[in-house]
Amino acid sequence: MLYTTFELRINFKNFSLATAMAIKKLLSFLFLQLTLCLLLLDLTNAESLKLGFYKKTCPNMEGIVFKTAHRYISRAPSLAAALLRLHFHDCFVRGCDGSVLLDSTKNNKAEKDGIPNSSLRGYDVIDAVKSAIENKCPGVVSCADILAMVARDAVSMIHGPYWDVPTGRRDGRVSLASETIPNLPPSFANITLLKQMFAAKGLNVKDLVVLSGGHTIGVSHCSSFTRRLYNFTGNGDADPSLDPKYAAHLRVKCKPEDANTIVEMDPGSFKTFDEDYYTLVSKRRGLFQSDAVLLNDEYTRNYVKHQAATHGSSFTNDFAKSMVKMGKIGVLTGRAGEIRKQCAFVN
């Protein structure tokens, strides 16, 4: 959905105090009603997704997705984290509409070229799956649905949970790099900002701490966290919330200006989906500041400690549920958007 912003200017000096107050209350009420209507419209779109959407139009679709993705993941398991991240970054900007897959054009800088997306990868996997499906069912399956299913399959292939993906998403035609920074939670976010950014997408605090567990796989460039090691407050100090021994270990790997070296998010098992992330965070060894701040909120702290103490007793089930919920953010359905012939280009 493309929301249109508008500006209303009223000079309240022209009205009595009582009239001005009444107008302000009316405007606040109307704004609230508009917000609720837009939210309900988003929820209606999400509910139109369903299991087996392509049962008649492309009955072997999920098998094709799995088989094609498996060719890549079996050779390079680290791609699973990249594909999960690709799905997350798609959904948090304009909803799960495949807009992160679009290439920039001469007149438009697309999401994939936004600063937060500069290290995204896995596009070739999505293109390969799309090509395989187009050979069997041309013009039927959206890139947005393919991305959601590939992320699920990739996680399951590295011992993570499997969840049923409701389908019926359509592809967006708009992709703007300028929308990435305002919508994607940064690695240096505090807990208040994280809660606000997730709430803006219809995700609650539990979804926040559960989806953060996706950091159990994958790697990060040093530049995403070196500020925590060398100049946390601007005075050449380290982040006091980071375990000193772990900070010393990271300083050996990452020098202050190092932007190229990569570090495992979950040392020792970064290619396996497990609950170790919560053990690390509970020991103050979360790599990002946005990991560490999960200990600054009562609910997220209790969840972290519970999963660490019980070896992730409910984590995989929780993750599956939150991924289904995330996959419904701002979806386009029905006649909205389009079914792209190639994921990198609008038709």
Rank of each mutant, 00 (worst) to 15 (best):
T44Q: 10
F315P: 00
G327Q: 05
A151T: 01
F319Y: 10
S241V: 02
A82D: 08
C96K: 02
V165M: 03
P185T: 13
F92Y: 12
D153S: 08
T180F: 15
G139T: 14
E257Q: 13
I23N: 00
Q289S: 12
N108M: 15
F188S: 14
A189L: 03
V100Y: 06
E338I: 15
Q196V: 06
I217D: 01
S322N: 06
K13W: 11
S212Q: 11
Y299R: 04
K50P: 09
L250R: 00
A46N: 05
K67M: 09
N107L: 10
E298Q: 09
L101E: 04
I23W: 12
I146P: 09
S48Y: 08
S28I: 00
P161D: 05
L40N: 02
I217A: 01
D297Q: 04
N204W: 07
T300K: 02
V174Y: 10
M149F: 15
K325N: 13
L86C: 05
M323H: 03
G114P: 01
D90P: 15
I133P: 03
K136Y: 08
L208Q: 05
R71K: 15
S224H: 04
K112T: 14
D145L: 13
T180I: 07
L2V: 14
N190T: 02
A76P: 13
S119Q: 13
R284I: 01
L79M: 05
T261G: 09
A189R: 07
M149Y: 14
S16Y: 11
K50S: 14
D90L: 02
L250Q: 07
T233H: 10
I10Y: 01
M265T: 11
V331R: 04
Q307T: 05
L147A: 08
T35F: 03
V293H: 03
I217Q: 01
D237I: 05
T44E: 07
K109V: 08
L294F: 06
G286P: 14
P182L: 14
V252K: 02
S118R: 14
P116L: 04
E111S: 06
V293P: 04
S119Y: 13
M61H: 12
N190G: 13
G160H: 00
F345L: 08
